[in-house]
Amino acid sequence: MHPAISIIFFTTASGAGYGLLVLLAWGALVGHLGSQTGFGIASFVVAIGLVGAGLLSSLGHLGHPERAWRALTQWRSSWLSREGVMAILTFLPALAFAWSWVVAGEVSKLAAALTIVGALVTTVCTAMIYASLKPIRAWRNPWTVPVYLTLGFYTGALLAALLLHVYGLRGPFVTFLIAVVGLVATALKIGYWMFLDGGRSASTAETATGLGSIGKVKMLDPPHTESNYLLKEMGYRVARKHARKLRLFVLLVGFGLPILLSFLAVQGSDAVAIAGSLLAVASGGLGVVVERWLFFAEARHTVTLYYGSSTA
């Protein structure tokens, strides 16, 4: 599948934003958030900014962005519609939570709890857009939703550590969380890649054409001599030959290095802590962007069975 930059940015940025919101709201619920006005304002600007920027970026993918409001109407059947509705609804408790903490000085636990629910449900909806697509085995499997949730939480935790350090606060718990969630993400991605390499779609060139009873089906002549939308959108194959190296990059730069940097950061002075966690955010962010790029680039669509692939 063609990896559109707008969608990669949307899913990674909004995932990190929701992850950060969940952590902040969780901190509020267990009573760890003090009256840190600066930290509070900065955290919400980053979290809501990432979610908002992600949503705006997703509009860039549309042929008619001015009609985007229509996407809020079909929540009964469409995960994309549900995602849009939940993203907008989640702004309400998130802003109420931000107001109660930063301005009113007393955290509303109800708003914090609703923020967690909204952020998690929205992330699940985003993942389900992909996990519900039957023609794409790389997406329609039990790994997609946990990976989206875990990576959102992980990148949110990396951001939370940076924000804490910038405001002179120390959160050993967040460092611990980064390590645990980072290791879970590593395990999930390795499991996902084993799943991806270990099988193929039940659909083959034989089932796609129904000619399997005659024998093996091979393409003789393509239907057109030039490329078309289907081949550009669904037949994308640039990344696959580099997939092994890129997967290793994701594990090392996306998870290994940020975990290491996070532990180093909490050992040092304030300056070291800021520098370490900033590098961890950059490294983890780059790794997750490459992960999302691979998620698209490695995915095969059954339409390629009509264009010379024997399996999908």
């Binding site: 549309l62 042929g63 008619h64 962005p65 985007a68 996407a71 697509l133 023609p135 959108e233 669509h301």
Partner: peptide
């Protein structure tokens, strides 16, 4: 139609 292309993926 907003041109999100999701139907073509489905």
């Amino acid at each position: 139609c907003i041109g999100c292309k999701l139907c073509s993926w489905a």
